[in-house]
Computed example of a mutant assay.
Amino acid sequence: MTIAVGDHLPQASFKEKTAEGPVEVTTEQLFKGKRVVVFAVPGAFTPTCTLNHLPGYLEHRDALLAKGVDAIAVIAVNDWHVMGAWAQASGGAGKIHFLADWDAGFTKAIGLDIDLSAGGLGVRSKRYSMLVDDGVVKSLDIEENPGQATVSSAEAMLARL
């Protein structure tokens, strides 16, 4: 079952690359008492994710924070090495959280996994964005086509805020 507006996020953990190595980030640490914008991508370094989706969140980071957002996080079913490299290559390191859902545990728990094996990617995350307030989903926008980043874009999130 897919998570819905009004639902609490399940307990899960991610890995985030830091200068000291990988750090575990739990949903409680990330969301408790905070207003967080989350967007998910099918894969780091993939064309739509790298050229369209992520750049908008980096460009509009300050505007999102000015609207009362405490943090911004991108989630992908990739390992923490790949997510760390993507953070560095994109210029996003230290600006937003690049969270590795390495085993798709979180993605499957919220019902937003997609099998992209036909394209050589395996099980990944659907492309979506959500606003989470203290662990509760306040908005959720899922792309119908994983190759598009429109309803889940930073611009769309800014308009909702």
Rank of each mutant, 00 (worst) to 15 (best):
M1A: 00
M1Y: 00
A4F: 00
V5M: 00
D7F: 01
D7A: 11
H8G: 13
P10H: 07
F14E: 07
K15R: 06
K17A: 15
T18L: 09
E20R: 14
E20K: 15
E20H: 14
E20L: 12
G21R: 09
V23L: 13
V23T: 15
E24T: 15
E24W: 09
E24I: 15
T27Y: 13
E28S: 13
F31I: 03
F31E: 02
K32W: 06
G33C: 03
G33D: 02
K34V: 02
K34D: 03
V36L: 11
V37D: 05
V37W: 02
V38G: 03
F39P: 05
A40M: 01
A40V: 09
V41M: 08
V41S: 12
A44P: 00
A44S: 08
F45S: 05
T48N: 02
T48E: 04
T50E: 09
L51M: 04
N52V: 09
L54P: 07
L54V: 10
L54K: 05
P55H: 05
G56P: 07
Y57F: 15
Y57H: 13
Y57K: 14
E59V: 05
R61N: 15
D62Q: 03
L64I: 03
A66F: 11
V69L: 10
A71F: 02
V74F: 03
A76K: 04
V77G: 05
V77I: 01
V77Q: 03
W80T: 12
W80Y: 15
H81N: 07
V82H: 07
A85V: 08
W86L: 01
W86G: 07
Q88E: 13
G91E: 02
G92D: 03
A93C: 06
A93N: 12
G94I: 05
G94K: 09
F98D: 11
F98R: 06
L99F: 04
A100Q: 00
D101F: 14
W102D: 11
D103E: 07
G105Y: 10
F106V: 13
T107F: 14
T107S: 10
K108S: 10
K108N: 13
I110K: 00
I110A: 08
G111A: 05
L112E: 09
D113I: 13
I114K: 12
D115C: 09
D115P: 12
L116K: 11
S117G: 08
G119R: 03
G122Q: 10
G122H: 14
G122N: 07
V123K: 02
R124W: 01
R124S: 00
R124E: 01
R127E: 05
Y128D: 09
Y128A: 00
S129R: 10
M130N: 12
L131S: 05
L131T: 11
L131H: 02
V132C: 08
D133P: 01
D133W: 00
D134G: 02
V136Y: 09
V136Q: 04
V137T: 01
S139E: 00
D141W: 13
I142Q: 00
I142H: 02
E143A: 12
E143P: 15
P146D: 09
G147I: 11
G147W: 15
G147Y: 15
S152D: 13
S152I: 07
S153C: 08
S153E: 10
A154Q: 05
A154S: 14
E155N: 07
M157C: 09
L158E: 07
L158I: 06
A159F: 14
R160G: 14
R160W: 13
R160E: 04
R160K: 14
L161Y: 15
L161M: 12
